[in-house]
Design a protein around this nucleic acid. Structure first.
Lengths: 228, 228
DNA sequence: TTCATACTTCGATCGTAACCGAAGCATCGC
DNA sequence: GCGATGCTTCGGTTACGATCGAAGTATGAA
């Protein structure tokens, strides 16, 4: 007994519904204010304030003062991965929300996961990159091929720049809605950024979902075909 | 708000200290009875019984009746990976137990993680397998090479048998004490089993730690050398 | 300065869940 | 059959933490 690190503390931090909702919202990658997070959690600002203080003390959140606002973000990508992996686990065990709600389909189609694309489109993109030989899937992991580097160059992504960062280029991230992997890492981020820059898609204000324009949809599906 | 799967439920399940202790103990891979788990959690059997019922309802545990005993185990390897990943996360944020205790060093040297070897020795073994060219590390993932298959055959592990199971052969599992990867998957299990079969090491009764005999220690270090 | 906004701290309430004693089943050994 | 062991269910207590109203602090706008 009493072996190893204390998982009960972080379990308890995530275990409160209001806090879990705030964390899930912050997995969208945006910095949110205390008031916004109170709305997300369905509680008053006073209560939210105490929750946020606890989450920060636990090392899950970081805050940045800006004028009279306080912007909260996840402390780092590790927190995002933990949340997303718990979502994947929860989805697999049938721990779903009570009402599917109208936003669910959009969320399953395409959403943001920290800073990269997730959902049906995220999984499709990785599948297509593997099928075309741009990415090698070896065991659990992913590796960019030379062909892939050329293909990406052609759509305006310079892999050389990305390699210089300390962050891994390719990472697989388990998708909770599809239960299959999508592409994370700096390359995943760069790809999503380029879609947004090109105007193919845009982020929504209150949700994690990503909305593709009709034209963007067409371009995306052309660029990442899947057989069948 | 109210997007995606409900992580609060599993967070809350893990968030209770008694339950967390039980789960951590079960990460040792052994099936434990309700009474044993009550001891681990530091609570009475009545209380433990309600906790175990909740964990089972939540899909984290499975139970098997055997005579008048009830043996509890983690529901599957996904639960073990979740627990271990939370431990890694917790260790990184300094959520450590209060007293390091005398057993900690043994635990850091070698311990069981579900069914494979973890700790310093687990990390060392994977490092050595990669350095010798038996395993390729590509991105996040691991793949056995032809050379590796031959080397393993020589120490009595038939990879062909392992491939027939549905479980992945190589998986990397993040080690909470070393903060680096060790080898999981069916190959990880087979390697640990062979060490135990050969008498190089044995499991302890109450702890997750694995004790190597002097001779086993020598053999292990010879088989998995590291430079430096 | 004065007022408004964003947020935190204080104080008190309230609900839930952890907890254990006692009683109730089930299984084993005799 | 009997008692002993392992575990669950019931009932009642207790404690912790989530919650919010009200007051307090900081920043910005007028």
């Amino acid at each position: 007994m009493k072996e190893g690190p204390d998982i009960a503390q972080i379990g308890a931090l995530i275990g409160d519904p209001a806090r879990a909702n705030m964390l899930a919202a912050l997995t969208g990658g945006r910095a949110l204010t205390a008031t916004e997070l109170a709305g997300v959690g369905g509680i008053t600002v006073q209560t939210a304030s105490t929750h946020l203080a606890k989450l920060e003390a636990g090392g899950l959140l970081a805050q940045r003062k800006q004028g009279r606002h306080r912007y909260f973000t996840l402390a780092d990508e590790a927190v995002a991965r933990l949340i997303e992996s718990m979502m994947g686990f929860a989805a697999g065990r049938g721990h779903l929300r009570h009402q599917p709600g109208p936003k669910e389909p959009a969320l399953r189609k395409a959403r943001i996961c920290y800073d990269h694309l997730a959902g049906d489109y995220g999984v499709r993109m990785l599948d297509s990159l593997i099928a075309s030989g741009s990415i090698d899937a070896v065991g659990d992991g992913l590796a960019l091929t030379e062909k892939g580097e050329g293909d990406l160059k052609r759509i305006g992504i310079d892999v050389g720049d990305l390699r210089s960062s300390r962050r891994p280029l390719c990472r697989s991230c388990l998708d909770w809605s599809e239960r299959r992997a999508h592409l994370a890492g700096s390359l995943g981020k760069a790809l999503l950024s380029s879609f947004l820059d090109k105007g193919w898609a845009r982020r929504t204000a209150e949700s994690r979902s990503i909305l593709f324009s009709p034209e963007g949809d067409r371009q995306f599906l052309r660029l990442f075909p899947v057989e069948g």
